[in-house]
Computed example of a mutant assay.
Amino acid sequence: MEKSRILIVDDEERIREMIREYTILEGYDIDEASDGIEALELFKQQEYSLIIVDVMMPKMDGWSLCREIRRISHVPVIMLTARGEEYDKLFGFELGVDDYIVKPFSPKELLARIKAIIRRSSLAGPKNFRGESINHEGLVIEFNSRNVYVDEKQISLTPKEYELLNYFVHNPNQVFSREQLLNSIWGYDFTGDNRTVDTHVKMLRESLGPYRKFIVTVWGIGYKFEVGVKR
């Protein structure tokens, strides 16, 4: 089996060294970059299973790097930062960050999250999609390409928004609690809380425009995907 390759991007050499030592012991191949520009060049030359990105870096910061990566790829991204405010986390999720770890952090915790994200990513390929596309009124989802269209206009979703939409459309009319959605989309080992689900549902609804109506809030329980009902 081919090894998973990880790109570590941090301007602090000691942080890169610590992450490298733990990940190599687990059998991962590792590349390193000390700033966003160097990382972007490596990313264009090599395929990665995961990218670990520090926020505050010279030349190109982590936010800008993630934005550039998301223009061309859905590769999982873990953001490392000394800033733990909720606003920063929400901003990261809007850019398409898959997980968010605040410094200082436990290397073992980071390794557990790396394993969980790579495992989920390996299971999220087209082989799990039933059919090539789904069309609900003017909402079209093409599963092989991960393209989503609203009234024939392609929209941009973050990886987690897309996974959430995909989960909803393949389980129509089923009511899911926030805990169930956390476990199914983020995994049992995700350390966030229920607000993560609410935030991503809100973002997804905004992206879907008039078809936000398909994502129905079931008060006191959670959410469901319902079509064919006028609201």
Rank of each mutant, 00 (worst) to 15 (best):
E137N: 10
R14L: 13
S184I: 01
E109M: 10
L182C: 01
Q46N: 15
L65H: 01
Q154D: 03
L90K: 13
C66Y: 00
G228E: 03
L95C: 05
R16D: 00
I30L: 03
N173L: 10
V218K: 14
N166E: 12
I24H: 09
V9W: 02
V218I: 15
I185S: 08
D151R: 04
T217M: 12
L110G: 02
E85R: 12
Y100F: 11
A116E: 15
Q174P: 04
K103C: 02
D193K: 02
Y149W: 13
Q46P: 06
R14V: 09
I118V: 15
Y162C: 06
R231W: 03
M203I: 08
R178D: 07
Y188W: 11
A82C: 04
R130Q: 13
G187W: 03
Q180M: 08
G187I: 04
N128M: 12
S4C: 07
F176R: 04
N128I: 12
R113Y: 03
D99R: 01
Y149N: 06
P159D: 05
A82H: 01
V218Y: 09
S64N: 09
D11M: 03
E21N: 06
V218G: 05
Y167D: 07
E21R: 06
I72R: 06
F168Y: 02
G209N: 14
V53H: 07
L42K: 14
D189P: 05
R231C: 01
I117Q: 11
H200F: 08
E41H: 12
R119T: 15
L204Q: 00
E137D: 15
E2H: 13
E41M: 06
F43T: 10
Q154F: 04
E132G: 06
E12Q: 15
E41Q: 10
K115M: 10
Y211F: 14
V227R: 09
H200M: 13
T196A: 14
V97S: 09
D11L: 01
N183G: 09
F190N: 04
L42V: 00
R120Q: 12
R20E: 10
N135H: 12
N144G: 12
P107R: 07
D31E: 11
N194Q: 14
H170S: 15
E206M: 06
G92S: 10
W186R: 09
V169L: 06
S156I: 13
G84L: 01
K103F: 01
A112N: 12
T23K: 06
D99Q: 00
R113A: 06
S207L: 02
K3Q: 05
M203Q: 14
V9S: 01
E142H: 14
L65S: 02
L25G: 11
D98Q: 05
R119Q: 13
R67L: 08
L182A: 00
E161K: 04
E38P: 02
I69R: 08
L164F: 10
H200A: 07
R20F: 06
E94I: 04
L40G: 03
S122W: 09
